[in-house]
Amino acid sequence: MASNHPLFKPLPAVQPVPSTVTVQVDGAPVRMSRQASLAAGLLAAGVTAVRRSPVGGGARAPYCMMGVCFECLVHVDGVPNQQACLITPQEGMHVQTLHSLAASESEGAHV
């Protein structure tokens, strides 16, 4: 799921230290800042692609971070097509990106 090389890293010594929540991303627990968007949390955790283009199959990732590009679509708590950049992570949230979506596709879930 997450690569070893996240494209983004935290600034040093953010004060006060933001409180975190634990979110399930493709079945694995990930700690995320409560103040940053889910998309930011995924990027910081090293997720490089969140879905595949339903047209050409290429990997897609967050692009604008402000809700106008609709690239950062993930499943959240079973609901598809959620814009991760507009969602605040909550404790226990279940997020599915392309990695677990590929598996559930055969069960008739969406793209």
Partner: peptide
């Protein structure tokens, strides 16, 4: 491609998440 974003996105990640390119 993943790995391509807008400068605005970079600025939002800085403001909102205190994240910078690694």
């Amino acid at each position: 491609l993943p790995g391509v974003m807008t400068a605005g996105a970079g600025q939002i990640l800085l403001k909102n998440a205190a994240l910078v390119p690694s």
